[in-house]
C-alpha cells in the first residue's frame, strides 16, 4: 500500500532535456535518411540527371553554389523578407489594436480583412508587377500582404480571450485603464500574438519564393528561375533545399523564442515537452 502511495507521489518519469534533444535529432536523421534513400533509388531508376539528379550531384552543386551566387541570393531574400515581414507585422498589430479598441473601426476593418484574407498573395503578383516592375517591390509587397492576416487574426483573438476575471482582479488592486492594457491585456494576448507571428512568417516565406520566381531580379526564388533556364536541375534542387532548410531554421528559432517568452504558460511547457 505504501509502495502504491509512493508511486503516485513520485514525479512523472521523463527524459532529461538532453535525452529529449537526442531523440529529436535521431528522428530527424532517420526521416532524412528515408527521403534521401528514396530519392537515390528514384534517380537511378529514371537515369536522367537533367530530369532528376542524384542526391550526391545536388550536394556537389550546393557546395559549388556556396562559393558562387548562393550567399547573395540568400541576402537578397532576407532583405525582402525583413522589410515585408516587418511592415506586415507592424500593420497587422496596428489594425488589430485599433479594431479591438474601437468597435466602430472593427466593423469596418474586420469585413475588409475577411474579404481579402481568402485571396492568395500569389493572385496579386500580376498587379504587383505592374505597380513595381520586376524589382524587389514585388516580393516585399507580397510578403507584407501574406504576413498581415495571421498576425491580425491571432492578435484580435488574443485580445478577445482575455479573462474578465483577470481584468477585475487588476481593477480591484487599483490598476488604471492604461495599466490594465499594458499589464493585463497585452501579456494575456502575447501567446496568441507570438503564434500569429510564427504563422505569418510561414506564409511570408512561401509568398517570398513565389514572388521572386516571377516578379523579382534577385533572391532565392529568382535564382530557381535562372537555373531552370539553363536546365541546371542539380542547382535548382540545391536552391530548393536551401529554401527548405532556411525556412525550417526560422520556424525553429521563432518556436524557441515563443517558448522562452511564454514560459509562464502551462501550455508552452507542454509544447516544449512535446
Amino acid at each position: 500500500m505504501s509502495d502504491a502511495a509512493q508511486v503516485v507521489l513520485a514525479p512523472p518519469p521523463r527524459a532529461g532535456v538532453a535525452g529529449r534533444r537526442l531523440t529529436r535529432v535521431l528522428e530527424i536523421v532517420v526521416a532524412l535518411a528515408v527521403v534521401v534513400g528514396l530519392w537515390q533509388v528514384t534517380s537511378i531508376t529514371i537515369n536522367n540527371s537533367t530530369l532528376l539528379p542524384s542526391p550526391a550531384r545536388v550536394f556537389h552543386a550546393w557546395l559549388d553554389l556556396l562559393h558562387a551566387d548562393l550567399r547573395q541570393d540568400v541576402l537578397a531574400s532576407l532583405a525582402h523578407l525583413g522589410i515585408g515581414y516587418a511592415l506586415g507585422i507592424a500593420t497587422g498589430l496596428a489594425l488589430a489594436a485599433i479594431s479591438t479598441r474601437f468597435a466602430l473601426l472593427e466593423s469596418i476593418v474586420d469585413p475588409l480583412i475577411e474579404l481579402l484574407r481568402p485571396i492568395s498573395a500569389i493572385a496579386w503578383i500580376p498587379i504587383a508587377i505592374l505597380m513595381f516592375g520586376i524589382s524587389a517591390g514585388v516580393p516585399v509587397f507580397l510578403i507584407f500582404y501574406a504576413s498581415l492576416f495571421p498576425i491580425f487574426v491571432n492578435t484580435v483573438a488574443g485580445v478577445k480571450q482575455v479573462d474578465a476575471k483577470l481584468v477585475h482582479a487588476a481593477q480591484m488592486l487599483g490598476a488604471s485603464r492604461r495599466m490594465i492594457l499594458t499589464h493585463v491585456v497585452m501579456p494575456a494576448a502575447l501567446p496568441y500574438v507570438l503564434a500569429g507571428a510564427r504563422l505569418s512568417l510561414g506564409v511570408a516565406w512561401m509568398a517570398m519564393v513565389a514572388a521572386e520566381l516571377t516578379g523579382s531580379d534577385a533572391g532565392l526564388g529568382w535564382r530557381l528561375f535562372w537555373y531552370q533556364e539553363f536546365f541546371a536541375m542539380d542547382k535548382v534542387m540545391a536552391v530548393i533545399l536551401t529554401i527548405g532548410v532556411l525556412g525550417y531554421c526560422f520556424d525553429t528559432l521563432l518556436r524557441a523564442l515563443q517558448a522562452r517568452i511564454t514560459r509562464w504558460s502551462p501550455d508552452s511547457v507542454v509544447d516544449e515537452a512535446r
Binding site: D163, K165, L166, H168, A169, A170, M172, L173, G174, A175, S176, M179, H183, V184, P187, A188, L190, T262, W264, S265, P266
Partner: peptide, 25 residues
C-alpha cells in the same frame, strides 16, 4: 480587496510579481 474562487492570479507573473501588483498599481 477581492479574492476569487479560481484565484485569478496573473499567470505571467510570479508569486512575487502577483503580490507586488497592488502596490505597483
Amino acid at each position: 480587496g477581492v479574492m476569487f474562487q479560481d484565484y485569478a492570479l496573473f499567470p505571467w507573473r510570479t508569486v512575487l510579481g502577483n503580490v507586488e501588483f497592488g502596490p505597483l498599481a
